[in-house]
C-alpha cells in the first residue's frame, strides 16, 4: 500500500478515465439534447473497435490511429441514420418507447456483428513503446489515447460553443418549440446531436481497441460504465461526463490497491445508486 504502488495505478486509471469519459459524453449529450437514453450505446462502442480492427487487418493494413478518424466519421453517419430510422418518429413519445427503439438497434447491431465477427476475442496489435519517468512507466498507447480523448473533447466544446450549429443544438436542447420559432430545423439538429453522440462512442471504442482485446459484446460493459459516469456527472452534462469518467477511472485505479478488483464494481454501483437517490442532478448539476 505504498506510494510506489499507488501512483502508477492512479495514472493508469486516470488515463482510462479519459476514454470512459469520452464515451459517456456521447451518451449524456444525446440525453441532454433529446431526453433519450441511448441503449445502442454499448454496441456502437463495439462497432468503433471493429472499425479499427477491420481496417487494420484488411488488405490496406490501415494504421489504427487513422482508423480512429474513420470511426469518427462513420459514427457520425451511423448516428444520423439511426436517428431517422429508429427515433425520429417517436422522439416525443414516453421514455419506454425511445428506450426500446434504441434497444432494438442494439439487438440488430449485436446480431449482425456476432454473425460476422463471431464472439472470438480480437485484438489490435499496436505498440508505441513506453516512457519511463522515475519508477513510473507510461505505455505509449495509453498516452496517445489520452491525447486523442482530449483533442476530441476539445473539438466537441469548440463545436457546441463556438459555432452556429452548436448554438442551434443547444437551443434545441433548451426548448425545442422556441428554437423552431427562431427558424431552427430541430429535426436536423436532433439527428446531428445523435450523430455526434454516436461518433463519440465510436471513437471511444476505437481507442479502447488499441488497449484491450474485445469482441462484439464488449460494448455492454462500457455502456453500463457510461451510465454510472453520466449519472455521476449529471445526466445531460458533457463536462460532468468527462470529469465523471476521470473520477471513475481514478477510482478503479486507486481502489484496486486497497480492495480486491472484484469489489470495485460494487463500489461503483453503490455510488451510482446513492447519487441517483440523493443528488439526481449529479455532482455538477444537470447540464453545463
Amino acid at each position: 500500500m505504498s506510494l510506489e504502488a499507488l501512483i502508477p495505478s492512479a495514472i493508469d486509471g486516470l488515463m482510462l478515465g479519459f476514454v470512459y469519459g469520452l464515451a459517456a459524453m456521447g451518451l449524456t449529450l444525446i440525453f441532454g439534447v433529446m431526453r433519450v437514453i441511448n441503449l445502442s450505446h454499448g454496441p456502437v462502442i463495439a462497432l468503433g473497435m471493429f472499425v479499427v480492427y477491420t481496417l487494420f487487418t484488411g488488405p490496406l493494413g490501415v494504421n489504427p490511429y487513422l482508423g480512429i478518424v474513420a470511426a469518427l466519421v462513420i459514427g457520425l453517419a451511423f448516428g444520423v441514420v439511426e436517428y431517422f430510422v429508429a427515433l425520429d418518429r417517436v422522439i416525443n413519445a414516453p421514455e419506454l418507447t425511445t428506450l426500446l427503439a434504441t434497444f432494438s438497434v442494439n439487438l440488430m447491431i449485436i446480431g449482425i456483428a456476432t454473425s460476422v465477427f463471431t464472439t472470438t476475442p480480437r485484438a489490435v496489435d499496436v505498440s508505441l513503446g513506453s516512457v519511463g519517468i522515475g519508477n513510473v512507466t507510461v505505455l505509449g498507447t495509453h498516452a496517445v489515447a489520452v491525447l486523442v480523448a482530449i483533442v476530441v473533447a476539445a473539438g466537441l466544446y469548440g463545436l457546441l460553443f463556438r459555432t452556429r450549429v452548436g448554438k442551434s443544438i443547444r437551443a434545441v436542447a433548451n426548448n425545442r418549440a422556441a428554437a423552431e420559432l427562431m427558424g431552427i430545423d430541430s429535426r436536423r439538429m436532433l439527428a446531428l446531436a445523435f450523430g455526434i453522440g454516436t461518433s463519440l462512442a465510436m471513437v471511444s471504442g476505437a481507442l479502447l481497441s488499441t488497449l484491450f482485446p474485445f469482441n462484439p459484446l464488449s460494448g455492454t460493459g462500457y455502456e453500463v460504465k457510461s451510465f454510472v459516469i453520466v449519472v455521476l456527472g449529471g445526466l445531460g452534462n458533457p463536462t460532468g461526463a468527462l470529469l465523471g469518467g476521470i473520477v471513475i477511472g481514478l477510482l478503479e485505479g486507486v481502489t484496486t490497491v486497497f480492495i480486491p478488483v472484484s469489489w470495485v464494481p460494487v463500489l461503483e454501483y453503490v455510488i451510482f445508486i446513492l447519487i441517483l437517490l440523493v443528488r439526481p442532478a449529479g455532482l455538477l448539476g444537470a447540464r453545463a
Binding site: A86, R89, V90, L100, A101, F103, S104, M108, I110, G111
Partner: peptide, 20 residues
Amino acid sequence: ANFQLFLAGLLLLVTVLFVS
C-alpha cells in the same frame, strides 16, 4: 439462425414505431 438477434431487433423496432 445467425440473424436471430437482428430479426428480433427489427421486429421490436417495427412494433415500437408502428404498433405501439
